[in-house]
């Protein structure tokens, strides 16, 4: 099952709208993310885990904490409102250098968006320079926060080709992918 930030029907729209109106503030952003993640936990993830599914989240609490704490939200407050359980069995942090991220972002969507380049933070200059600075700040913030999430956090170098990064991800997850038990009694 695929989940991740901004994927609940409940909060997907207001989260998108927030990007067009960042003056609404970081508390609103964080609370919308919290509603988004709690909704996915309560409506989908818990049941899927109970049924034995592997749940793959395309960004989770760590990303929200990095984005919102950079915008001034108190990390303790963020921990209070975000769903810290169920705790991921493994968090894989794909760490690409800012310049590689920039090249990929431009190839995919053209000029990085206002929020993606951190221009709401007023960290300077043109969109591309702002993007590089913002992504560097996010990266440092994310790694610091990751350390507080315990030993199930793993950083993976992501500057390589997609195939090579995929090989590394599969190796990193191998210990979790145990073959299901076969019923031989009947």
């Amino acid at each position: 099952m695929h989940v991740g930030i901004g994927r609940s029907k409940l909060a997907e729209r207001p989260l998108r709208d927030w990007q067009a109106a960042p003056e609404s503030g970081v508390h609103a952003l964080a609370l919308l993310y919290a509603a988004d993640l709690h909704d996915q936990v309560e409506q989908r993830i818990t049941a899927a885990l109970d049924a034995g599914f592997a749940v793959v989240a395309d960004r989770w609490v760590g990303t929200v904490m990095a984005r919102c704490s950079l915008r001034g939200a108190n990390p303790d407050w963020l921990r209070a409102i975000l769903p810290l359980t169920p705790e991921p069995d493994c968090t894989l942090y794909l760490q690409a250098s800012p310049r590689v991220r920039l090249a990929r972002a431009i190839a995919k969507r053209g000029l990085p968006s206002f929020i993606e380049s951190g221009r709401d933070l007023g960290i300077g200059g043109d969109p591309l320079r702002s993007f590089l600075r913002y992504q560097d700040m996010l990266d440092r913030n994310q790694r610091q926060l990751g350390a507080t999430f315990g030993g199930r956090w793993q950083s993976v170098t992501a500057d390589d080709t997609a195939d090579n990064v995929q090989d590394v991800l599969r190796q990193a997850l191998a210990h979790l992918l145990v073959a299901p038990a076969v019923d031989t009694d009947g």
């Binding site: 309560e42 993830i45 818990t46």
Partner: peptide, 14 residues
């Protein structure tokens, strides 16, 4: 992810 309770109780800021 591990299963488990997800209720918001237990947060620790004052």
């Amino acid at each position: 992810m591990s299963g488990g309770a997800h209720a918001p109780q237990g947060a620790t800021v004052s």
